[in-house]
């Protein structure tokens, strides 16, 4: 489903963030990208999510090379991904409902469809009762679950999670991983970047380890 070949990304000529990275992920598979801070995990996720373009190489998703797509088509492609950001990227001046509904407004869903979908997503992450709460009043784990609800609201085929358990205690960490595993079980391809190798060890899933922008086998 996703095939990345020889991806190189650099913001200057001297120090590439990613060097000749190649890997593939099947449909419905779960992949962990691990490595120390600064290894290029976030950049790799941003490239897969079509948020940035590599300097070299190709990323084929569903038979289409997304690195060659016209910029005007990219917003529509991004709607097929569920993105969970390391810094959450929540709108602190909007309540839980509005945060989750944002992708639906962007995709042009009808007003009658939006509340149903939002409540279904909130239910899945256990935040149904917090619908009208402001994100600032939520705990770290709840904020992360809110972020997941927003990511899955469009029923994406691919879920890209960048350090979703960072800054969470062990209980919350397990909770988030379980939620992601649940989505994976129903056929969603999950790619998760983490620096926490213990999570990967506890699960028997595909893993690539990045160090200084290259895959270490």
């Amino acid at each position: 489903m996703i095939e990345a070949s020889n991806i190189t990304k650099s913001y200057n000529d001297t120090n590439p963030i990613l060097r000749d990275v190649s890997f593939s992920v099947d449909k419905g598979e779960m992949l962990f990208i691990t490595g120390p801070s600064g290894a290029g995990k976030t950049t790799l996720l941003r490239l897969i999510g079509a948020l940035e373009r590599p300097n070299k190489g190709s990323i084929i998703i569903g038979g289409q090379d997304i690195t060659k797509m016209h910029p005007n088509s990219l917003p529509f492609l991004r709607r097929n991904f569920g993105l969970i950001f390391q810094d959450l990227k929540l709108l602190m001046d909007r309540n839980v409902f509005d945060n989750v509904a944002l992708p639906l407004f962007i995709s042009g869903y009808s007003r009658s469809e939006i509340p149903k979908r939002v409540r279904a997503a909130l239910d899945k992450v256990g935040l149904m009762h917090k619908e009208m709460s402001m994100p600032i009043t939520l705990s770290g784990g709840e904020q992360q679950r809110l972020c997941i609800a927003r990511a899955i609201i469009n029923r994406p085929a691919i879920l890209l999670a960048d350090e979703p358990t960072a800054n969470l205690d062990e209980a919350y960490e397990r909770e988030i991983i379980e939620i992601l595993k649940d989505f994976n079980r129903v056929g969603v391809t999950v790619i998760m970047a983490t620096h926490n190798v213990n999570i990967v060890r506890s699960m028997h899933v595909k893993n690539i380890y990045l160090e200084r922008g290259a895959i270490v086998t």
Partner: peptide, 12 residues
């Protein structure tokens, strides 16, 4: 922030 997030999640 809203613009940036919207852009990231597929807003044209």
């Amino acid at each position: 922030k809203e613009i940036e997030i919207s852009k990231l999640i597929g807003a044209t």
